[in-house]
Design a protein around this nucleic acid. Structure first.
Lengths: 186, 186
DNA sequence: ACCGTTCTGTAACACTGTCACGGTGGTACC
DNA sequence: GGTACCACCGTGACAGTGTTACAGAACGGT
């Protein structure tokens, strides 16, 4: 599907506001109607980009091989998450930022989005069964996703203070966060 | 300024896509040109909403009185942050979600945004001087902002799994996170 | 009273997403 | 081979959007 590929390129290169149906149709050598007959409208086309972006994120996360130590695996997963987001920030904006107005992911799409976090969930469950982590696995998974997504989102939007060594701060924050789940709650 | 108030109401009530200059001008009993003579365009008007939203967030955070224990203060600040975001999710989308296309905060606006986190920074610096926390204060502040913003953002976008007890999970994640900064790194 | 500045409204321009209409291509069936 | 069907496509229109040039209107200073 050339339309979808070109849409991804256009989005990654020039942002969400450059992704117009007319421009997309002209670049793909077709007309705007093709988007409606093939997908059903612009939100439906963006939905495909949405699930494709999460699929790509999932494969990035699946590429980190567990070392056996869940704590270091968590940090490695977080770094892979950040790298995946930084390779195409506009795609990350589609995933979480509501970059395209009028697009809200349906339940099936959000389910596929959550499925991208399977490697994270696996590392955490093995950690809890081994007694390295002490809390509920789902709760801890959300905590890890939260800090990773939060820091990446703040970085991409320019909310971090200028002159900050982001990779060092990021890794340090990830280490501290995982440390918080390894010690037993009082 | 009636235009600004109405813009905030319109945004909070019906979302970013309902905030059109014509609708706004008709509601305020004026014309779209007023937005250009008074602000300089729609992005400039949204900029005012942006700094106002962060001012409101800052006052919410400043309303929590420190108890003397930095760890519990951090959790209280996180809960206040979440409540402030949930009272007007669309405003939160303007702050972080890029809800209005074409609006990017300038350096001055992002500086005012960062200033809203002053209460968080204060609690952390007092914690580090007392020896409760062991890392760099700025790094830890970003970590706290990251997990809080990340979890709130995921919740507002519907990315958390259905049926999850969000307040309980949120507080537990915050406690684990602060615990990670209280123990000394190995 | 005059002028200059500032604000306002009207109307237009260049866009956008969306859809009804007519046509075109390929495929399945007799 | 001929034909009916159906999915797809392009043209053109409609209703919106942000933006701005231009013509008045209100205001204050000289």
């Amino acid at each position: 599907m050339r339309l979808l590929d070109r849409a991804g390129e256009l989005l990654s290169a020039e942002g969400a506001s450059a992704l117009s149906l007319r421009r997309l149709a002209a670049d793909a050598g077709t007309s705007t109607t093709a988007v409606y007959s093939l997908f059903g409208g612009k939100p439906a086309l963006v939905r495909e980009l949405y699930v494709e972006a999460f699929r790509r994120l999932g494969s990035h996360l699946r590429a980190v091989r567990p070392t056996g130590d869940p704590a270091t695996d968590l940090v490695a997963l977080g770094i892979a998450y950040r790298e995946s987001a930084r390779t195409s920030p506009h795609l990350y904006g589609v995933m979480f930022g509501g970059a395209i107005p009028g697009f809200e992911p349906d339940d099936d799409a959000t389910e596929q989005a959550r499925a991208a976090l399977a490697p994270l969930m696996e590392v955490i469950t093995t950690g809890t069964t081994r007694g390295v982590f002490h809390d509920d696995a789902t709760t801890m998974t959300m905590g890890c996703w939260g800090i990773v997504h939060g820091l990446v989102s703040l970085e991409l939007r320019g909310n971090l203070p200028p002159g900050l060594d982001v990779p060092a701060m990021y890794e340090q924050a990830l280490r501290a966060h995982t440390r918080g789940w390894t010690v037993a709650p009082p």
